[in-house]
Design a protein around this nucleic acid. Structure first.
Length: 494
RNA sequence: GGUCCUUUGGCCGAGUGGUUAGGCAGAGCUCUGCAAAAGCUCGUACAGCGGUUCGAAUCCGCUAGGGACCUCCA
């Protein structure tokens, strides 16, 4: 089966067909950098990192654009007041751009710790003010926007006469209106669903730019429309983001792009589900978010211990991206152990040398091949990483049994062993982006431990268990675990 | 109130109308000087009530619980 993607627009899994054969354009809504990213944000970016990596694995040339929102995000829903950067800047008594710099760097550091590849382009809202003004002008010219006292609003009612505004989340205009409050006397907007494209700035406002309508700053939604258009074109393949963005942000993006260019911007809309804590959504406004650093250090009242970035990444891979994922110590510890088991099997597998052309156990050979072929099949079914991991875990006992001699070394054909090695490497490292954080890669340390292992082996051969136990116990106290192997040697891990 | 999603064994979590998902935890056994690891075996789960069907955890309806969005949030 070729790659199928669940499309929010149609609420169905669809065969993925890129606009330009061999190329994929993908836009993902990035963070608003006015404070630290929390783990829920990270989940979305990890999910799309896997998708990005898998598309490349399939041979596509991918242009992956993920924006940094560094302007224009307002505090409330009324399209008035200060933006979040200005507010935080005042609070911390620094320039808004210092806020942006600080949290952008923090965001990139976390992404790197989680081993997310950087996107092809990471454009900022403040770097594309003129593009946003141009788009706003075009929307005014096309009759989908109006100006009130230097602020430009998108006219949802006008747009709805020609287009289906609620198409993305399958909502009727009347239902959407029902959920909104009545317009007050001081409201500038004509319609309750209208949203700002450009906002007039008060003189004391910290971040503002000149425009045909006076000094101001862009509304939140316009940046993604302007930047996706600039780097990916009027129409591109995939647009992604968290599910919470679908109803408002993405709905408005579609309206802006259609109002401006008369075409729907993206063919496939992908939405990742929320990370929850005790069943409730992790969010900035609820204040129940975990910061990545709190997780990596264990410095949080709800955490029993620290968890490595790779444990977190693996934890997220065990769930499908469209399911909610609940955060708990028990679940994380399960992932930690599972990852270790899988990784050790991977390292064992890499040491296998091909033995013979023919498999001495044809049935087992066929079973292994089938499980391996299941990797691609599962990923092609809307990126089912959980299923891939299940197959991998089924292969682990086979790998370990070959190592221990419980299964003959020539049981598998050499081509099967090579396939297994290649696919494990491709999936664990290239696609899932996991790295070995469990064992040290310091060569000197490795040599020292090997020396101790040799001394211990000698002691054991003389039945000097006092010495052998001392070495093992002391190393254990330092965090190095020795495991005796069948052949008399020992392996170790941190 | 409106729109929609979800409900799987101790925990986490896949899932196709008819076959053991998988991981973690737990129990037993094997291997081992001991330990750890590893291997083997084990729980026969699918919210409740109806219906469709030869057959449903998987389709439909109702009931109950949970959640999301409709307001800034990935």
């Amino acid at each position: 089966m070729a790659l199928h993607i669940y499309n929010t627009l149609t609420r169905e899994k669809e065969l993925f067909t890129p606009i330009t054969p061999g190329h994929v354009g993908m836009y993902v809504c990035g963070p608003t950098v006015y404070n630290d990213v929390h783990l829920g944000n990270c989940r979305t970016f990890i999910s799309f990192d896997i998708i990005y990596r898998y598309l490349m694995y399939l041979g596509y040339k991918v242009r992956y654009v993920r924006n940094i929102t560094d302007a224009g995000h307002l505090e409330g829903d009324r399209d008035e007041g200060d933006d979040k950067f200005s507010k935080m800047a005042k609070l911390q008594q620094v320039e808004p751009m210092e806020i942006v710099q600080k949290y952008t760097l923090g965001f990139r550091r976390v992404m790197q710790l989680l081993n997310n590849l950087p996107p092809s382009i990471e454009p900022t809202a403040t770097g594309h003010i003129s593009e946003q003004i141009e788009m706003t002008k075009q929307l005014l010219a096309n009759g989908y926007a109006y100006e009130v006292n230097g602020t430009i609003y998108f006219d949802v009612e006008k747009y709805s006469k020609e287009e289906n505004y609620g198409i993305l989340t399958n909502r009727k205009l009347e239902d959407l209106l029902e959920g909104t409050r009545e317009l007050g006397g001081q409201d500038e907007k004509h319609g309750r669903l209208d949203f700002a494209l450009w906002i007039k700035a008060k003189p004391e406002h910290l971040m503002q730019w000149p425009s045909p309508w006076g000094m101001g700053f862009p509304g939140w939604h316009i940046e993604c429309s302007a930047m996706s258009n600039k780097y990916l074109g009027k129409q591109f393949d995939i647009h992604g983001g968290g599910m919470d963005l679908a109803a408002t942000h993405h709905t408005n993006e579609i309206a802006q792009s259609k109002g401006c260019y008369h075409v729907s911007p993206a063919n496939y809309w992908m939405h990742t589900n929320m990370l929850t804590v005790n069943g409730a959504r992790m969010s900035k406004s609820l204040g129940n978010g975990f910061l990545p650093d709190e997780l990596f250090t264990g410095n949080h009242p709800l955490l029993e211990k620290a968890y490595a970035p790779m444990t977190v990444r693996f934890f997220m891979l065990q769930t499908h991206y469209r399911s909610t994922l609940d955060f708990s110590n028990e679940a994380l510890q399960g992932s930690e152990k599972g990852l270790r088991r899988l990784w050790e099997a991977f390292e064992t597998l890499n040491k296998f040398a091909p033995v013979n052309e023919q498999a001495s156990e044809a049935e087992l050979d066929a079973k292994v091949k089938k499980l391996v072929e299941g990797f691609d099949e599962s990923m092609n079914d809307d990126f089912n990483t959980a299923k891939v991991l299940a197959n991998m875990f089924e292969l682990v006992p086979i790998i370990n049994s070959i190592k221990d001699g419980l299964i003959a070394a020539n049981a598998l054909a050499s081509s099967t062993v090579t396939l297994l090695q290649n696919k494990f490497k491709a999936y664990l490292e290239d696609i899932f982006g996991l790295t070995n954080s469990a064992t040290g890669n310091n060569e000197v340390l490795g040599d020292v431990v090997q020396l101790l292992i040799d001394i211990r082996k000698e002691a054991k051969s003389k039945k000097d268990f006092a010495t052998s136990d001392k070495i093992r116990n002391q190393l254990a106290a330092m965090g190095i675990a020795l495991k005796d192997e069948k052949d008399g040697n020992a392996s170790w891990s941190l």
